[in-house]
Amino acid sequence: MLKLDGVTKVYRIGAFGGQTMTAVDDAGFEIKPGEVVSLIGESGSGKSTIGKMVLRLLPPTSGTISIDGRDVRGIGRRDYYRKVQGVFQDPFSSYNPVFKADRVFAMIREVYFRGVPDKEWTAKIEAALDAVRLSPAAVLNKFPHQLSGGQLQRLLIARALLLDIEYLVADEIISMLDASTRIDVLNLLADLKQRGLGVLFITHDLALGNYISERTVVLHKGRIVEYGPTDAVFEQPEHAYTKKLLASVPQLHTKWEDAS
């Protein structure tokens, strides 16, 4: 179980770090293996900051993040990243544009699978690509700009799968994708949870969260304003902010005017 407890992040801003800004304030929730938790809020509400703290790309100002009861700060980074991985919002910025896209695999191999012979490694990659439903011929040996956003995001998920991870932080991973590719990536996440993966699904769109998640955390200005089973949050939102977010989701068959 991945657990956040009283996690707070204060950024120093201004010329000499004189001012501060509290991006996340006393956040606590947990993700169990095999479940998707959606973290929902407007832009600037602190979602990515939480995601980055879980991925240890940013240190929390206070509070603890633990995995199976162990404080993550006590775990070596390399061991930690074997268990917890992330995928980010912008597929094009996630790849170094001067290299081929499959270098993200090579990087993993260099650090974690040095001794693995080529043949075994190829098989491993093929298995991971198969899990994200990509054909090796279509994506290997290509530059990022030769692949679509959906292919790039799925490659990143495949990269995470190479490590047999237990938790995945997915920060707005479909918001830059086309409608028709979105659903594929979303379904993929949902399938992975059936294999025991715990997913932190960050989004600003309640409808997307509702589609795949068991539990929902709603974040407003860095504070958690609602936390519970997705059904409950979705059907009977308690906080006015949640209601507003819900009402803002554009619906295909209902116009905003008619809904209110």
């Binding site: 409608a179 028709s180 979105r182 659903i183 979303l186 379904n187 949902a190 309640l206 409808a207 997307l208 509702n210 589609y211 795949i212 979705f234 819900l246 989701v249 619906q251 295909l252 068959h253």
Partner: peptide, 13 residues
């Protein structure tokens, strides 16, 4: 196909 791929409010996986 495009329309039917849209996750609507209330639809669950």
């Amino acid at each position: 196909l495009l329309i039917s791929s849209l996750p609507e409010v209330g639809v669950r996986y």
